[in-house]
Design a protein around this nucleic acid. Structure first.
Lengths: 201, 201, 201, 201
DNA sequence: CATGAATGAGCCTTCATTCAT
DNA sequence: CATGAATGAAGGCTCATTCAT
């Protein structure tokens, strides 16, 4: 999955591309500006022409990847009529994106959380929109009667997000691939139908 | 919640305690050895008498905290007869531990994942036991008929772990407290009964 | 005897010059990077822009000094027609260089041997060429009949090198000067004519 | 070749033995007191009960090894009647000792020179005796007519010492063995008979 | 638009050494 | 005779960042 910077001066594009490539295999902290510049074929100084910070670079790259992610999600929802269908679509699209876009997954699942500056960044705003979208669908479902009305919608939101993230965590850390369709289907089944067994009567 | 090192030479105890205290408010990377030593009232060099590394210190402290966590979990399970009861107990105990032991939560939810060395550490072994315990209960429940037999037990394990972690994430990051009982009850309800609404008949 | 780095950015030149100057009076291990940087009027960090290592700095400086040494030797040989003349010239030039270039002498006679990394460095390659030059002349002399054909040329090479080095060792260690011409003449006489006394007949 | 410390309290013996063993493969600077203590099975502190210094330990071990060396030399000389015979014996015994006692060779050829404190130590006094012995024999030979009277005896001494040391240097550095008899014979032949070829007449 | 020389602050780590017990 | 806990001073090295050109 490529996510090239399509805009801006050549130097900026080169830097973002190189950084993105590095993020596929290394963690943020261990990537040095020298390494980025070297891989991009530019000088270290140029990084600070286009980014205020190393972290700013991370945020901009995340922003870029996240835009594609968000677009995919919204495309998936559009066609669906029911809330359950929409949530299924989101779960599938999320797993799919995390699976096929390693950089996105690494940043979102590993890097971003312990950085306070992230939560002040524009990148975080996008994630909030994503989370909010889920929450809105849940609320809508509870109103329309598709979903049980006696739940804390925030909690369901967290269960869904947690399920998505934890499912992807292992593959990101240990660099494995998973069967997205099966995983998405299984998660949907568990969360929507519950796991308690109802004996036949 | 304090979890002091009860064994070893005074210097080692002081170091672990001081580091633990620092971890409550700062992230690992930004804690310097000078800071640790200063807070512990020992010299920096002593750290390397007892720990091979700054990371080793992290792992040993985590290990220590996790031992208490694990003990709490097992105590909770003991009394329960049903698999569902056991899982409920684990979810509650986990949320409770993460809520009251900030250091444990911070390390496990924020710090540890992007460090490869963690996964080779003894501390990781404990987490695997924890995850394994959940998996075993799930399997047992599927066999006894308490839980639906047509699920991927690994997936349910991930949903549970993901729900726990994501629920705690926000409070860890933004330093808030939550109502553990309510959250645990809600998560249990969602996962066990499902969220789909079944109209009255 | 100065042997400044004539190429490269000013910072690199300053570092090499300062280090060279320090090597005249102190041994490598006791020279700190802070000292080098201080004497050079640059920051410590800059050292690592131009040298991978403190040792790399040593090797590059040695390389530089040795180049001049080597050049002197070759100039001395050029004019000589006989092998014996060439060897005489080498012995003289070597003693002369060691005497007048204290840094070269110190590095070659004292520092370099116990460092394994030296033998993998480019600097060592030059020394091998020097030793090889001597060996080649010896072999040539044995073929042309100037030198006895019934010797191990390697052994003679070692005797010559050993004589040169040991003669210079004391002056390097105790910081004394010697009469180069007399010493060279004496060594040549001993090695070429032997020390056994042949009574008159 | 073993050179155990036969006297003193068990702790001291253990320390010297362990250090000696370590010196066979590592250089002095890279051997830590922790390593010595660990290998000796004692605590670091004990080292300072018996030795004022790490360097003192080196000197005492060298002293011990050198005593055996010196004894071997003197035994070799004793039987010989001529000065030439004595020098031959010294050359042979020296090469032999360096070859079979790696620790002695390493210390004398590699470590000792760049340490100023060595030259103030008792160990250095022994080496001076060794060198002095050679010088005395040379002078005696020059007086009795065995050796040419028109030489600088100091220079011959240096040539002999240099030849011995340089011949052994390579095997010490690269850990190779040599044919002691052949080397000694060759060196003797070169130095005593000279290398100039005298055509038959 | 880009370079490259230089900075500066600090970090982790090492290790010989001491001393009370 | 020996331990082991603790020190302290320094040391090499990294790296994000700046700025004149």
């Amino acid at each position: 999955m490529k996510t090239p910077a399509r805009t801006g001066p050549p130097g900026k594009i080169k830097i973002m591309t190189a950084f993105s490539r590095l993020m596929e295999t290394k963690d943020f902290q261990s990537i040095t500006t020298a390494e980025i510049a070297g891989n991009a074929g530019v000088t270290e100084g140029l990084i600070y022409k286009y980014f205020t910070d190393k972290k700013d670079l991370l945020h901009q790259v995340l922003h870029q990847h996240f835009a594609a992610f968000q677009a995919g999600i919204e495309a998936g929802i559009q066609e669906k009529q029911t809330c359950i269908g929409k949530l299924e679509a989101i779960i599938f699209a999320s797993l799919d994106s995390y699976t096929h876009n390693r950089v996105l997954a690494r940043i979102l699942l590993l890097e971003v959380r312990n950085s306070l500056s992230y939560f002040e960044s524009g990148a975080y705003a996008m994630v909030k929109i994503y989370a909010r979208t889920i929450l809105d669908i849940i609320r809508e479902g509870m109103e329309t009667g598709e979903l049980r009305p006696d739940m804390d919608p925030f909690l369901l939101q967290k269960v869904i997000l947690g399920a998505i993230e934890h499912t992807c965590l292992k593959q990101v850390i240990f660099d494995k691939k998973m069967d997205v369709t099966a995983a998405a289907g299984g998660i949907v089944d568990i969360i929507f139908n519950g796991v308690k067994h109802h004996g036949c009567h």
